Amino acid sequence: MTMRFSTPLIALCAALLLAPAAQAERLKDLASIGGVRQNQLSGYGIVVGLDGTGDQTTQTPFTVQSIVAMLQQKGVNLPAGTSLQLKNVAAVMVTASLPAFAQPGQTIDITVSSIGNAKSLRGGTLVMTPLQGADNQVYAMAQGNVLVGGVGASAGGSQVQVNHLSVGKISGGATVERAVPNSLGAGNQIKLELNTTDFLTASRVVEAVNNHFGPGIATALDGRVIRVMTPSSSDQRVAFLGILEGLDVSPAVSAAKVIMNARTGSVVMNQAVTLEQCAISHGNLSVTISSEPQVSQPNALSKGKTVVSQSAQVEVKKDLGKVVLVKGGANLAEVVKAMNAIGASPQDLLAILQALKAAGSLHAELEII
């Protein structure tokens, strides 16, 4: 049987084969394995032992309620109507990330953050705090001495502070109590999930995997997910995945994109940004208003009054506009050079790039953050 291909299809295949490839990267840097992920944990706790820098209990009643509930659990019942004035206690939120495949008994780092008006957590001790996941199940228990990287001092109304005092860390401060179920390798297959959806990169990953392990091992489901067949035994599967993550793959060239931050004026362009032939004109108009006080002093015995008036000066300055011709197909270096030649500031560059995009001269996607 003879198969015939249309000319457009042949041209498309040739374009894909001749598309410029970026520098080869490890597969583990381009994709992740489905189901292998971290899980966020959080919990509400109490830090004690502070040196008078805790919450002001009159403004944070939840701190007092937490202390009363904790004392009741310890068998200490306070008389009714007791008013606690605590200075060495602070209510905090404890957060952590539970790594993939973490087992009971392992320790993880935690971050302790004040949620009241405590001045500092320095020197405090976190009381045993359960850490829960999104399903409200307890996966770890946290406790330990809080390490704060900042320092502060105050005296006579003056205050000096270095870094942040209301957030601290405890290395290995939580012990895992429950493992997260994982179905890695179920059905003798896994799914590779690309960090960025790209059909050409997905096809290159499939080609690299099949060339190394044999045909039919990898199959692209779409532009992001790739199904890979794995060995049935767990030890062989682990070795297989180790080799798989180390394969070198050349990702497709990133799409031309310009990222603009309207608040800070930052503009970032990748190397795929190009310009068609165009002319760019730029000129600055600045208005300066200054005011100087003038004092009018009357003569002696004239019974006059001293009068203070303001003398305002307004100056309008207009820089000469410049017109720069940019040749078609200009790369990133030529674009930056042209912008510098007309003296464009970052804020001016935002308006210029938007105008170039509207005129059809800028071959890139504009993204404003």
Rank of each mutant, 00 (worst) to 15 (best):
A262S: 06
I243T: 12
M269H: 07
I280E: 06
V258R: 01
Q271D: 15
G265K: 06
N261T: 02
S281K: 09
S234T: 13
N210S: 10
G223K: 09
L275V: 01
A272P: 04
N261E: 12
I243C: 07
D235R: 07
V225I: 13
N211Q: 14
D222G: 02
S250F: 11
M269F: 08
T264L: 08
I226S: 06
G223M: 03
L241H: 04
A256Y: 09
S233Q: 14
D198Q: 04
A252P: 14
S254A: 15
A272Y: 07
H212A: 11
F213L: 04
F199S: 09
Q236M: 05
I280W: 04
G223F: 02
V249D: 05
V205M: 02
S250E: 15
G216D: 04
S281H: 09
N261W: 05
T274L: 08
A218M: 01
A255D: 12
S254T: 15
R263L: 09
G246W: 08
A255N: 11
V238A: 11
R237G: 08
H212G: 00
R227Y: 03
S266C: 00
V205Y: 05
L200A: 12
V268E: 09
A256K: 11
P251R: 01
T264C: 02
D248N: 08
G246Y: 03
A239Y: 04
S266P: 00
A272G: 11
D198R: 01
D222E: 01
A208F: 00
E276C: 06
A218L: 12
T201S: 12
A255F: 07
I217V: 12
A279N: 14
L275R: 02
F213C: 03
A272N: 13
S254W: 04
Q236W: 01
N270F: 07
S281G: 12
F213E: 03
L275E: 00
R263W: 06
R227M: 11
S250M: 08
G216A: 02
A239F: 03
R204A: 06
P231H: 03
L200P: 00
M269G: 08
I243H: 13
T197M: 05
L247C: 04
V273G: 10
I217R: 06
L275A: 01
V209K: 03
G265P: 01
S233D: 14
